[in-house]
Simulated assay, not measured.
Amino acid sequence: MKILITGQQGQVSRELQGRLQGLGELIVLGRDQLDLVNTDQIREQIRAHRPDLIINAAAHTAVDQAESEREVAFAINAIAPGVLAEEAKALGVPLIHYSTDYVFDGSKPAPYTEADTPNPLGVYGQSKLAGEQAIAAVGGQYLILRTSWVYSNHGKNFLLTLQRLLQEKPQMRIVADQIGAPTWAGSIANSTRALIERWQAGKAGEWGIYHLTAQGETSWFGFAEAIGAHVRHQGRACAELEPIPSSAYPTPAKRPLNSRLDCSRLQQQWHVSQPLWQNALRECLAQQH
């Protein structure tokens, strides 16, 4: 089996490259080989490689930057996924694509299900929703996996930034009124492998949109406290943490207050579930040494 993965340095792509070993030949196309802004290049690469499965792990994920880069965000997050879906359908192969909690506005008091109506607050969420819609419009075999608060031991993310800042600063103010599930990129890659294995074994569930986040919930402040506890446990200096409301930390892009996603449909359809966020965080941190 030939598996084509878009994106090379991203958090999810890096974990996929390690965790999909043994499933087949991995063709990983970074920005040098595949510029997602260039639709002709997308078609050329897929037609040249003729993969048995396409995984789109590339995205424009700079949420605040997207507010001033609407065209680029939409090219990468909306137009490119539609082109990938067209090429996958033409080959008769599945497409796995990752989306986000930011397609919702966060006003719902309970976790979001796949049946809830999206209402993104900013350009990033709008572009990701447009990507979902483009894939669905093409049809074919596809999985759109919405996740949230992704972190790993690579790239730019909350975990790595906080680990550094906790040791540099005496005090830190962290937003405490946004609730969600920090989701390790390693867990996302493990689940992706499980989904591929079920499909290969003829045990695929329904194709479509699914929610895929860690189990449990916390705030950014709660996530920061868990990271701080690890830093202190190692005997290192650690900043004092102070909880603040989102209103005290204005950003160019507005964030949803409720990012909780109900992941029960993935478990029912594909028998794939996620670990508790605390357990996944422990596993991720254990791999730093």
Rank of each mutant, 00 (worst) to 15 (best):
T6L: 05
Q9M: 04
E15W: 15
I27R: 08
V28I: 13
D35N: 15
L36V: 13
D52R: 15
N56V: 08
E67Q: 15
S68F: 07
S68L: 13
E69C: 09
A88G: 02
P94N: 14
F104H: 11
A110P: 00
E114M: 06
L121Q: 00
K128G: 01
L129R: 05
A137M: 01
Y142N: 10
I144T: 15
R146Q: 02
W149N: 05
G155M: 08
L159P: 01
L162C: 05
R164W: 06
L166A: 03
K169S: 01
D177I: 10
I179H: 11
S187M: 11
I188V: 15
A189I: 10
T192M: 12
R193K: 15
R193G: 03
L195P: 12
I196E: 06
W199G: 04
A204G: 10
G205R: 09
I209F: 07
H211Q: 12
S219M: 06
A229H: 05
H233Q: 14
R236D: 00
A237S: 06
A237T: 02
P245D: 07
S246N: 11
P250D: 03
K254V: 04
R255D: 00
P256N: 07
L257V: 02
L257A: 09
L261G: 10
S264W: 03
L266Q: 05
Q268G: 05
Q278D: 04
Q278C: 03
Q278Y: 01
L285M: 10
Q287F: 05
